[in-house]
Every structure is written in C-alpha cells, then in structure tokens.
Design a protein around this nucleic acid. Structure first.
Lengths: 107, 107
DNA sequence: CGTGTAAGGAATTCTGACACG
DNA sequence: CGTGTAAGGAATTCTGACACG
C-alpha cells in the first residue's frame, strides 16, 4: 500500500539493536565502519542508523571474521563483488536500451 | 537469502525514529499505545521497539485523527477488521484441510 | 479527550584514548 | 590488527503529573 517500501534498505536501527541482532559488540560494529565495511547513516545529532541489509552484511562479516579473514580481505572481496555487480547492471541496462529501440526478440 | 526475514514485522525501531518517520510526537505515540491502538515490544531495559508495520499503522491513525476520528472509534474499527480477518483465515484454513484430504478440484 | 510540557532518573550513544598483542 | 574498557558529555527514553479544554 505504501510506495515501494524497501524496508530492508531503510536505515532506522540504532547500534544497540544491531548489536543484539548480530551478537557483535558496539565496539566491533564501529570498528567495521572505520574499516569501511559498513556505512550507517547518521541521525541529526550523530547517532548511527542501520538497515536490515546492514545487519545481514554484519552477520556475513562476523562469519568471515570467525574464519580468520581480516577486515582488509573482506573489504577487497566487497569491492570486487561490487565491480562485478556494476558490470552486470551496465550490461543489463544496455540490453534494455537495445530492446527498447529494436523490439524484444525471442532467444 | 535469510529465512523469511519479514523485516516489516520485526520490532527494532526506537520511538524517536518512529516520531521522525510518522511526524507524530513521542507523546502522541505513547498515548496511542495507552489507548491500545499500537503494541510495541519492550527492550530489556524498557525501551519501546516498533516495526515498520507499526509505523504504517501509526500513519493510518494519524490520518484518521486528522479527520477528527476519536481514538475509541479507531480502536473499534481495528477490532472489527481483526475479527473479519480471523473469520477469513479460519475459512481458508478449513478449505486447505478439505483440499488436503480430498484433493484439489478445479473450480 | 488528546496533547504539551517540566522533572528527575536511568540507559544510550558518541568520541578519543590507552591497553594488549 | 581487532577488540576491550574507563571517561565525560550529550542526547534518548521512561514514568507520573499538571495544564488546557
């Protein structure tokens, strides 16, 4: 009923709740931000706000950390994945434009 | 990828954020709880926690209040809607059981 | 009835730093 | 490197109450 809610992306969760949800300490969560693994928004007075997507991301990070992966490695993997994703999106966008101009063809 | 996230129902938002999201004062939000229009969970130390569904509910309440509808009326409407919904669910549940026993029939 | 506000206390969050390793 | 902790301050939240209407 609302306009594309996308609750998953909405940054509304405080660090205390994120800590409960992930089992990570607030210290850890702030540190991962320092290492650019996570990007909360800030409320007007400076409080960090996280989304459910961030919570999932933190859980992934926690799992990798348990396996001994360093934050630097995790960041590199993230950047690689992101580049891959952008490449895919550019490709899909291009395909969409071609279809728009020349019509949809089967196969 | 997670197990039926249902982010919409998860009670993780503090009253301050709900206030920003809805435009209602914290006083109003607490009052609507007192009038049994909204049911936040409580964190271990007593802080209220709301879901996105609660936020939507509050926006509906705010709209009705602007139209001059009293909280008592809003509550009655809610109870009526809930009874209707339960009736529907019982009916659907029953239908499901019948189908499970006698198979799905077309039309 | 519905909402604002001041009151006092308790819990939250923030930053920068020291510690250990 | 990754995380814990004590420190001090600022912002948040809570409850019960008085106010107005």
């Amino acid at each position: 009923m609302a306009d594309i809610p996308s609750y998953k992306q909405r940054k509304v969760i405080t660090i205390g709740v994120v800590s409960e949800l992930t089992g990570l300490s607030e210290r850890q969560i702030r540190y991962y931000e320092e290492r650019k693994l996570i990007f909360p928004e800030r409320a007007p007075k400076g409080n960090r706000k996280y989304s459910f997507a961030d919570v999932e991301q933190l859980i992934d990070i926690a799992n990798k950390r348990e396996e001994g992966v360093q934050t630097y490695e995790i960041r590199q993997d993230m950047l690689r994945a992101e580049r891959k994703k952008e490449k895919r999106m550019r490709r899909d966008l291009l395909r969409g434009e071609i279809n728009a101009r020349f019509g949809i063809q089967k196969e």
